[in-house]
């Protein structure tokens, strides 16, 4: 597990805290945003094929017009309680080197957020991991948590790796 710690600790100061277009969505009442450049498309919920030996937030794989891509339930990823999937539930397909789907409660809108409107993530103590956060976008008295989606999904990969190690130890 020490690998995970080391891998996550050196926090990169992201250069992406500049303004631009963000796709916003909600997750358990909180508002999030991802850079629009990372978003490939938004699709409704599709049949997901569960893949064994995966962390619980890795829901499985879907068929995106012939491509098999993994989908992550962002609620579970962030340690929020699971929710029933509804008509509103969407999968946002993002490009993080390869395509991946993230399941969110609802997709809201595309917002233009100026660099001036973005604050660095506030120190929230050890209870909240802020390495996934690009910054806090302040739009009309509301706060959108702008995600570094690469970080979210790559960290997950590291987690999986260490898990496999853990599993091997159990062998």
């Amino acid at each position: 597990m020490s690998t995970t710690l080391q891998a996550v600790q050196p926090r990169k100061i992201s250069q992406n805290t500049k303004g631009g277009k963000y796709l916003t969505f909600s997750l358990a009442g909180e508002e999030y945003g991802v850079e629009i450049l990372k978003v490939r498309e938004i699709i409704g919920l599709m049949d997901i094929t569960a893949v064994p030996q995966m962390p619980h937030y890795m829901k499985g794989v879907i068929n995106l017009r012939g491509k098999v891509i993994p989908v992550v339930d962002l609620r579970l990823k962030f340690g929020m309680p699971a929710a029933e999937y509804t008509e509103q539930t969407c999968t946002i397909v993002v490009d993080v080197g390869n395509l991946m789907g993230i399941i969110v409660d609802t997709v809201q809108e595309v917002l233009d957020i100026d660099a001036a409107q973005i604050d660095p993530p506030p120190p929230l103590g050890v209870a909240v991991d802020t390495s996934f956060i690009l910054g806090m976008g302040k739009v009309k008295e509301q706060v959108k948590i702008l995600l570094d989606i690469d970080q979210v999904l790559t960290a997950e990969e590291l987690a999986m790796l260490s898990e496999m190690e853990g599993q091997k130890d159990g062998d």
Partner: peptide, 20 residues
């Protein structure tokens, strides 16, 4: 068991990353 093993590991990892 296998699944539980994995989820517990996952939870474990998440705690760690939260700490980090």
């Amino acid at each position: 068991d296998g699944v539980r093993l994995i989820s517990s590991l996952a939870a474990n990892e998440e705690q760690l990353s939260t700490v980090g």
